[in-house]
């Protein structure tokens, strides 16, 4: 039964609520702004649900605690913000190599280095291009509202389990900190049966979870199998949203918080009579490149807006038809583009 009561929560709390709704009772994490409400929420709620909360000694430890929890078959998660996610890259590579499901929330702040605690989309490359060592991919969702912080957390558990792959919710400081009303719905897909977990070899041969393959050709085969899985993910899990693209001459492409700002700018442009639309990738890996490609058959120009110096724009350029113009407008280092700024860019490039 779907509850139709709206409640006002912060994005970070919505993540915690979504996780528990998805059956995640094991949380491991290390404090970092601007995501502290997630560990705080989990430390309060999990004991009430017979779960476990561990404040790890570092993000290196938290991602590896998630790896252990995942190996014994439970749903578990960690959350952090950019510098902490950097420390988790080793663990993410192992999770991918051992094909272990895990959910990681990145409430992105600005960098490089210690950077600052203001919002940013500077971790796009790190999230969707690998980040750690080796050829692997992390399924990456890009929420743009508090409702989606909740929904995507649930979806992340589902995708992680179905593909036995780490899945990241790539949020940002604005999404983590802002309050919006959300619906807590009850529709959570059933957890798939896991026949690979390490739960004791009592009535079966011993199992191993590993990423080390030393025999001739074994590792190449393992890599090819992983790539095949990523292709399946590309085929079935692409998600995106479009507004007013049907007759658009210029389409603004943006994800997450930038997409919300861009949407306001696009409606103002429409009010001015400009044929402008918005394309918002909801999954950034898998990237909705095919859709962008078909849009580029009739859209003359794309304007990519990001809170960084130009990361997703590279994926847009890779996917649109050769002669399509792709412009970029970005604000790095904690700056947030305003709707007026984006509108000015729309008018400039229209």
């Amino acid at each position: 039964m779907t509850e139709q009561k709206r409640i006002l929560v912060k994005g970070n709390e919505a993540v915690g609520m979504g996780a528990i709704r998805a059956g995640c009772l094991y949380y491991f994490g290390y404090p970092i702004t601007p995501q502290n409400e997630i560990p705080e929420f989990m430390s309060r709620e999990l004991p009430r649900h017979d779960g476990e909360f561990v404040q790890a000694e570092s993000e290196l430890a938290s991602i590896n605690m998630v790896l252990g929890a995942s190996a014994v078959g439970v749903r578990s998660m960690t959350s952090s913000s950019s510098p902490g996610i950097s420390l988790m890259q080793e663990g993410l590579s192992y999770l991918a190599g051992q094909e272990l499901p895990a959910v990681v929330i990145n409430v992105v702040r600005c960098g490089p280095g210690l950077g600052g605690i203001a919002t940013s989309q500077g971790d796009y490359f790190q999230a969707v291009k690998g980040g750690g060592h080796g050829d692997y991919r992390v399924i990456t969702l890009a929420p743009a509202s508090v409702q989606e912080m909740y929904d995507h957390t649930i979806l992340a558990f589902d995708l992680a389990d179905r593909y036995r792959n780490p899945t990241m919710v790539l949020a940002d400081a604005v999404l983590g900190q802002m309050q919006e009303p959300i619906f807590e719905h009850g529709d959570v897909p059933p957890e798939p049966r896991k026949h690979w977990t390490l739960t004791g070899a009592a009535n079966r041969p011993a199992r191993h979870l590993k990423s080390l393959y030393l025999k001739e050709g074994e590792l190449e085969a393992h890599n090819r199998m992983l790539q095949e899985k990523y292709r399946e993910i590309q085929k079935h899990e692409v998600r995106f949203e479009e507004y007013d693209v049907d007759d658009a001459q210029l389409v603004v492409a943006a994800f997450g918080t930038s997409a919300r700002i861009a949407r306001t700018a696009v409606s103002r442009a429409r009010e001015k009579g400009l044929k402008v639309g918005l394309f918002r990738p909801v999954t950034v890996f898998p990237f909705p490149g095919m859709r962008l490609c078909s849009l580029s058959e009739r859209v003359k120009k794309f304007l990519v807006v990001e809170m960084n110096t130009g990361q997703m724009v590279e994926d847009v350029r890779l996917n649109v038809k050769g002669d399509t113009e792709v412009e970029f407008y970005g604000r790095p280092g904690g700056a947030i583009p305003t709707p007026v700024e984006v509108l000015t860019q729309i008018e400039r490039h229209y």
Partner: peptide, 27 residues
Amino acid sequence: YDYFNCDIIEAPHGRAPAVATGMKRSR
């Protein structure tokens, strides 16, 4: 893991106690 008849996981270099923590806390 090639020699024991129990389930075994490989941990990243040095992280075995964290992996073990995640396992034991969950099961």
